[in-house]
Amino acid sequence: MNVVVVAGSIAGSKTRTAVDYTVKSLKENYSDVDVTLLDLAEYNVQFSDGRNYLDYDGDTGYVARTLMKAEVLIIGTPIFQASIPGSLKNVFDLLPGDGLRDKTAAMIVTAGSARHYLIAEQQLKPILGYMKAQIVQSYVFIEEDNFYRREITNDDVLFRIDRLLEDTMVLAKTSAKIREAKEAEYDF
């Protein structure tokens, strides 16, 4: 199974810290998956201009094609100004409207305040749903006081990330079996 973990910002370190733990946990606990980390801070992604994602080249083409090949997406995002970063929204804009069909998507959200807890519900889930992703309903929300020197200091946060990964893999495998059974109904 092809899992892509996205660090959806070009600034800050907390989301990258959470995503790094996520990648480590995936590799330790799910040896049957291929894990790719896409940290948007490491790529020069141009603004979407409406072209087909296959028509982009360079970093933009690589990011878009990597997301389209994924079977599972784990999206890490900070909350800036009560919203997801423009860099993450731009990546979604590069993809077709149904570009997340048959992909399982989970979210890890970092924020400076508990007041931003519902941003994932109000902004990120609607985008993922519109793009036809199978969304893991729960997500991990991590506040600033759970980090110290680029480390997650709260064991409950680590437990919640591990649980999110378990829920994500179960949903992905279950959805794949359902699709396979549905396709087997066709006799051509």
Rank of each mutant, 00 (worst) to 15 (best):
R65Y: 09
M68C: 07
A70P: 10
E71W: 10
V72E: 00
L73V: 04
G76Y: 06
T77R: 03
T77Q: 00
T77Y: 07
T77E: 04
F80H: 15
F80S: 00
Q81W: 12
Q81V: 13
Q81D: 12
A82L: 12
A82V: 09
S83A: 12
I84S: 01
G86T: 01
S87E: 14
S87K: 03
L88N: 00
L88S: 01
L88T: 05
L88H: 04
L88Q: 00
N90Q: 02
F92A: 01
D93T: 01
L94I: 03
L94C: 03
L94R: 01
L95T: 06
D98R: 08
D98T: 11
R101E: 15
D102C: 06
T104E: 07
T104G: 02
T104Q: 08
A105R: 07
A106I: 01
I108G: 00
V109P: 04
T110R: 07
T110Q: 05
A111P: 00
G112A: 11
G112N: 11
S113W: 09
S113K: 06
A114H: 12
R115D: 13
R115E: 13
Y117T: 11
Y117R: 12
L118R: 12
I119D: 06
E121R: 09
Q122T: 13
Q122A: 11
L124Q: 02
L124N: 04
I127M: 08
G129M: 11
G129V: 09
G129R: 13
A133T: 03
